[in-house]
Write a protein that binds this DNA or RNA. Structure first.
Lengths: 105, 105
DNA sequence: GGCGAACATAAGTTGACACTTTAGGAAGTA
DNA sequence: TACTTCCTAAAGTGTCAACTTATGTTCGCC
């Protein structure tokens, strides 16, 4: 999760991710959407791939990338868990107070 | 969302966030769980507060912090949207191919 | 084999950031 | 007021990461 989090913390990488979410694009096509140089995009793609957020497929001299939503699964689970367990804690707290009030009445 | 993402990309800040998720803790109590110095924790708390991930409440000479799950809402929505729209795109793609097959048969 | 296209990798620069030590401010206590 | 506690603010330092230009590397084509 750490790697995925670091990866999507960078705005350009989030943009790349949305670009290749629905369609497979080559590195050059991706780079065409940005102001930075090709190598910069290449490095970003490497980070995204290392984090498991994109897949790479070679086709001749080109490399095609596409999003891999499973790579975000752990992060999604972490966030949802954060909510759920927080709600559970609040619930337990409320029940504890309720029980205390019952004893005092 | 950007700020929240950068904030939780740092491991120590994630640990802080889980520490104050269910109970309100003072800056000193939080710092007690880490090896780094107090000021370092203070800076992390500042970042978390700036991102809307924790609330701060003063009580005498102490400052009490607690997680604010709403601060993660945008990020959660982004991740869920990433899945949902991706699935929609795949569905549309499948339907398009299905229609094409129908015409050719 | 030679050549160009599409990318990746290498090397170097710059800015951000997580940390440190030092100093300052606000609240409680004698 | 003086003193202590708790914490933040300021200033400095080392490391990392995002970018640049320059240099491979791999593939298709003549």
């Amino acid at each position: 999760m750490e790697a995925a989090l670091k990866a999507i913390a960078e705005p350009n990488r989030r943009r790349i991710l949305t670009l290749v979410r629905d369609e497979e694009l080559s590195a050059g096509e991706i780079a065409g959407h940005f102001d930075v140089t090709g190598p910069a995009i290449s490095q970003h793609l490497k980070v995204l791939k290392g984090a498991g957020l994109v897949s790479e497929r070679r086709n001749g001299t080109r490399r095609l990338y596409q999003a891999r939503p499973e790579g975000l699964y752990d992060l999604k689970a972490f966030l949802e868990g954060f909510w759920d367990e927080r709600l559970d804690a609040l619930k337990r707290e409320a029940e504890r107070k309720e029980a205390k009030r019952g004893r005092n009445s």
